[in-house]
Design a protein around this nucleic acid. Structure first.
Length: 540
RNA sequence: GCAGGCGUGGUCUAGUCUGGUAUGACUAGGGGUUUCCAACCCCUCAACCUGGGUUCAAAUCCCGGCGCCUGCACCA
């Protein structure tokens, strides 16, 4: 079977997902609500295992600092992050044919205009499709809004990405890292976007789980591409349309990927995805064109999987520059900059003697302090305060020695994974069909269960023995599933359908010599081994 | 959000045109039999998306809502 082959379609995956307890539409009993899913017993296990693998890669191995941020944020924060402005589309629709357009796309230079300007211009424009008059402009924001507190409360929004939590926590995380750059924050959590028309189940959700890393570094000292990642094979589709199968090292050397940290995270993302079972032949990284780029990003590569629905984005590796930290630095009261090492200078500075200024100038002292805030103070500085010329002599100031560094906003590279999409793509791409037999061929690490425990029959004490074995498997940390219903073949089929990695069958010989039959899912190979050997093999 | 199509047990489906106690299969559960890759026999559970209208009577006809699919638009 070919690596890149597509063997199953969307409808089929959704049908089996429902049948086998992976996921189903939420609020089904009330007619459903588009864009929301419930995960069932098997789905929750799969998600948990994918998350475990992600944490292993990014938190445990790569040493990212993990955060779990609040879901609801204040308006001022989203103002600063750009989400209130940029996530907000001004829409008009045609009164005649009902088509809907983005107002800023209909007006020349509309993308640069303020809302009120746009509203004035749009009055004179008619429907591009049928030339009928257009409706008044209405705003649509993709963020869910709510109100915080009693009564009218203050406006709040559900976060549309987990990233902002990490940006806001940057000064705090930096202290946890004892002031050292580079470092990365990592977060797993839910995000919310009020999509206009969510479709295709887990691929376009209104509530979804993100796994994000924000890797902070000094712009003057970008982490280099680690040598062990240079040979990572990767398929790249750059913005100019050229597709290349190359290595991360070559892509960086030839400047297809210009940032060493972006290159690093392309390699890491690829490693992670392959480790959870994404077939390399179905994976590529596609560079965004400049018109596609999000408001914060200067370079972005989407990791995409080839599915029955076309290429589906499951991870974005974005160079966000200093967009977010400088936005929060400017809008909030906190310092988000860091000193640039080596720029530390000793300076002789004159500081005003506020006590003396106050005694001498009384009410004007405040104005003087403000006036000297932005100039370099030295003896006999002359100022104009309320039309009066004032010369500050040495008596009003004293000289101090200070060590000062240049300050800079760190830059950030962000790999951002969508868990729900990953799970869907994994189900689809690991689907195998062989005649009547259909099974999910996930690596053991992301299979929902390690082991099926099945007595060949439910008599002669075989089921009792199987229960005992079940317990001993669970005791040593094996995720085991017990099934005694129906023929053994049927049980294998059920186990295969959700991708249980091993099956263990208990028969009469088990009662005599303690051996069992161990079956491996993909090959269907069976071997008779002692229970102890079997459990050791199954144990992860 | 617009247009078109669709909505029947857990799943797939017949029935809708032509209004009258909803068909079949699979799955699942119980029992029997058998035992290493969805075997067989018996039994059981279980459905007309929702709200209104027309009618003696609505799964069926009409209108609204919700959901799904396709196309357009949108998409970090």
């Amino acid at each position: 079977m070919q690596d890149g082959e597509i063997r199953v379609d969307f409808q089929k995956v959704i049908a089996v997902a429902t049948k086998r307890g992976i996921f189903q539409p939420a609020f089904d009993a009330y007619g459903g609500l588009a864009g929301f899913l419930d995960y069932g017993p098997v789905g929750v296990r799969m998600r948990r295992r994918i998350l475990e693998m992600w944490r292993k890669h990014y938190v445990i191995n790569a040493g990212c600092l993990e955060l779990d941020g609040a879901l609801i944020g204040p308006e001022s924060m989203f103002q600063a992050s750009g989400h209130l402005g940029e996530f907000d589309d001004a829409l008009v629709d045609c009164k005649e044919c009902g088509k809907q357009f983005r107002a800023d796309h209909l007006v020349d230079g509309g993308e640069e205009m303020s809302r009120s300007e746009l509203a004035k211009k749009i009055i004179n424009i008619s429907c591009p499709s049928c030339s009928s008059p257009l409706s008044e402009m209405s705003a649509f924001n993709l963020m869910f809004s709510t109100s915080v507190g009693a009564g009218k409360g203050s406006p709040g929004y559900l976060r549309p990405e987990t990233a902002q939590s990490i940006f806001l926590a940057f000064p705090w995380l930096l202290r946890q890292n004892r002031g050292k750059l580079p470092f990365a924050g990592a977060q797993i959590g839910r995000s919310f976007r009020n999509e206009i028309s969510p479709r295709q189940g887990p691929l376009r959700m209104r509530e979804f789980t993100q796994m994000e890393v924000e890797h902070f570094f000094l712009p003057t000292n970008e982490p280099s591409l680690p040598t062990e990642l240079r040979n990572t094979k990767i398929t790249l589709l750059s913005a100019d349309g050229k597709e290349s199968q190359t290595t991360v090292g070559q892509a960086f050397d030839s400047e297809v990927v210009t940032s060493s940290l972006v290159a690093t995270h392309l390699a890491r993302a690829q490693d992670f995805l392959i480790s959870i079972g994404v077939p390399p032949g179905k994976l590529r990284f596609r560079q965004h064109g400049s018109n596609e780029m999000a408001h914060y990003s200067s370079d972005c590569w989407d990791g995409e999987i080839n599915t029955s629905l076309g290429w589906v984005e499951i991870v974005g590796v974005a160079h966000r520059g200093d967009y977010d930290l400088s936005a929060h630095g400017n809008a909030s009261s906190r310092e988000f900059r860091v000193p640039i090492p080596g720029t530390e200078k000793e300076m002789e500075l004159w500081k005003p003697d506020i006590g003396k200024l106050g005694k001498e100038f009384k009410g004007d002292a405040k104005l003087i302090l403000e006036a000297i805030k932005n100039v370099e103070l030295k003896p006999n500085t002359s100022l104009n305060i309320n039309g009066k010329d004032i010369v500050l002599s040495e008596d009003y100031m004293s000289q101090k020695t200070e060590r000062i560094s240049e300050m800079v906003y760190p830059n950030v590279v962000e790999p951002s994974f969508g868990l729900d999409r990953i799970l869907y793509c994994l189900l689809e791409s690991s689907w195998n069909i062989d005649g009547e037999r259909e099974w999910i061929s996930l690596p053991q690490d992301t299979s929902p269960y390690d082991l099926l425990v099945a007595p060949l029959m439910t008599k002669d004490g075989l089921d009792t023995k199987a229960h005992e074995i079940m317990k001993s498997a669970i005791d040593i940390g094996i995720d085991a599933y017990y099934d005694e219903a129906g023929s053994i073949g049927r049980r294998y089929a059920r186990a295969d359908e959700i991708g249980i990695f091993y099956s263990m069958t208990i028969d009469h010989q088990t009662l005599e010599d303690g051996t069992i039959t161990l079956r491996e899912r993909d090959s269907k190979n069976q071997s008779r081994v002692s229970l102890e050997d079997a459990l050791n093999q199954v144990r992860r």
